[in-house]
Design a protein around this nucleic acid. Structure first.
Length: 482
RNA sequence: GCCCCCAUCGUCCAGCGGUCUAGGACUCCGCCCUUUCAAGGCGGCAACAGGGAUUCGAAUUCCCUUGGGGGCACCA
């Protein structure tokens, strides 16, 4: 049997990192087994779904590199892949189930249902509606013909139970007195999630349903529907949920939960994929950095952890730094330059771009997020602003003036402006003035970069060029005189 | 309240009856390197939730307790 998995997000919000991980696991499972990865739009909730969210999901998956074989925007044998366009099919199934006796029109009032649930709860039972207010088929027919609107509920067999084998949770059983006669078609003729999802899984020939644990207790409903349709249910795998640092379900109050926040925040998709993959799964050894290919060949749903994982941004950031450092210089620039340009609000000049190129190896070494780059390269663009804290802590020292003046003198006389020459000149300056590297070079750093914290000084001077460098030393000297 | 699931360092994982005085990674703390900041190297702090049972032997199996998570809609 060929593996056919689906990622079926509801476009009722930005793509959540937890859903992104579910998408990744689906993808890995399919790719490692010669399977088909399908993207479906579970947008039965038309009021809350919108195109901005649909776009965000597509953008997010594309960014992560999780390309799908079939579904939204790619087409396939089961088009359309948006549930909002398959309502007729769901109505057809609902009608067929009703005709076959697997479902029925429900005329219970809201009050009756509420009273029943309150009573059940008070009696220590799960408040699952058991169909006790179901009317005879004749009466139902009559009331329907009279124009009364009624939802269709699934007639859950009872007493009975549903047992299924979950790839990550092993065998799970739900007694049917925990499962209510759930609505499959609302009185307005729209399908509920359970109906649409189960029908699509059958129609699209889904072999494995890989989704969040929040759907675990709804699984009997889906299995029941599939069976009533005369089909076999897919194999299920319920993934543990993602938690915030406080152990509560990951939500906005923990910071960014949308993938887009990371996409826009200077993270590399490779790092995010790697990090997400390891939240609930590991290749087995003590490895942390894993390539997509390694994940694909090593991933198995049976190896997924059962317990919820805390999303730790600190580790993601560290990992992002690892991936940034592993980029080659050109690639680093290719990704960082747009971030810098967006920050300054204009394209870089040729000269500035050249400086960025030259500094790339030193920049990527100290970058965890691309968003940090603009701050690191500010001194390479336009004029320097002296950071006041840096100035006060470094330039007020007695040796500062001496060092800057001496550096200015020695650099002025340099024949060729390259790192080696610059370093040699400054080192001899230090010796001549009897200054330690720390004491003698920090003032120069502040003068040239505006800050006591910057990329390596010699390289920075080289990238900046002779004229700009000397001009900055002169400016600092002036300010020192005041 | 009822049902389901889960339980190893603060966090993410390894461990799947003996090789565990429990390993790796993040974080944190030292030291080294060093022109700042990083990166890197070395070292350190830190866990099998508790109690029974099975077994010659349990982090690994079973039961109970406790704790955490999820679900219980004409939401998805």
């Amino acid at each position: 049997m060929t593996v056919r998995v689906r990622f079926a997000p509801s476009p009722t919000g930005y793509l959540h990192v937890g859903n992104a991980r579910a998408a990744l696991y689906n993808f890995l499972y399919a790719r490692g087994r010669d399977g088909v990865f399908i993207l479906r739009g579970d947008d039965t909730d038309r009021a809350r779904s919108n195109d901005e969210f649909r776009r965000d999901i597509l953008d997010g998956l594309g960014w992560l590199g999780l390309d799908w074989d079939e579904g939204i925007e790619h087409g396939g044998p089961h088009e359309p892949y948006y549930q909002s366009r398959r309502f007729d099919r769901y109505r057809e199934v609902a009608a067929a189930l009703a005709a076959a006796g697997s479902a029925y029109h429900c005329f219970a009032t809201e009050e009756q249902l509420e009273a029943f649930r309150a009573e059940a709860r008070a009696a220590g039972r799960t408040p699952a509606y058991d169909g006790r207010f179901r009317v005879s088929d004749d009466e139902a027919r009559r009331r329907l013909d009279a124009g009364e609107a009624a939802p269709i509920r699934f007639a859950v067999p009872r007493p009975a139970a549903t047992t299924f084998r979950d790839l990550v949770r092993e065998e799970v059983t739900f007694d049917h007195d925990q499962v209510d006669d759930f609505v499959i078609l609302r009185s307005d003729g729209s399908p509920t999630y359970h109906l649409a999802s189960a029908v699509d899984d059958v129609d699209f020939e889904i072999s494995h349903v890989v989704r969040g644990e929040d759907l675990l207790s709804s699984t009997p409903k889906h299995i029941l529907i599939a069976a009533a349709m005369g089909a076999g249910a897919p194999t299920y795998a319920h993934l543990p949920l993602l938690m915030g640092p406080d152990g509560r379900k990951l939500s906005k109050r923990h910071g960014d939960t949308s993938l887009r926040a990371y996409r826009l925040g200077g993270y590399l998709p490779e790092a995010v994929v790697n990090y997400l993959a390891l939240l609930g799964w590991s290749p087995g050894d003590d490895v942390t950095i894993v390539s997509m290919d390694e994940m694909i060949s090593g991933f198995d749903l049976a190896d997924v952890n059962k317990n919820p994982a805390v999303f730790d941004v600190e580790k993601l950031e560290w990992m992002n730094g690892v991936y940034i450092r592993s980029l080659d210089d050109d690639e680093f620039v290719r990704r960082a330059r747009p971030v810098v340009e967006a920050h300054v609000g204009r394209p870089l000049t040729g000269e500035e771009a050249a400086r960025l190129d030259m500094m790339a190896p030193h920049l990527k070494e100290r970058t965890r997020l691309l968003a940090e780059v603009p701050g690191q390269v500010g001194f390479l663009l336009g004029d320097v602003d002296h950071d006041e804290r840096s100035w006060n802590s470094v330039m007020t020292k007695p040796e500062a003036g001496v060092a800057v003046a001496a550096a200015n003198r020695v650099l002025e006389g340099l024949e060729s402006w390259d790192v080696d020459a610059i370093e040699a000149a400054l080192r001899s300056m230090l010796e001549a003035e009897g200054l330690s590297a720390r004491k003698g070079l920090q003032p120069v750093r502040v003068a040239v970069t505006g800050s006591s914290v910057s990329p390596p000084l010699f390289e920075s001077l080289e990238a900046l060029g002779r004229e700009v460098s000397l001009a900055r030393l002169a400016v600092a000297l002036d300010r020192l005189d005041d």
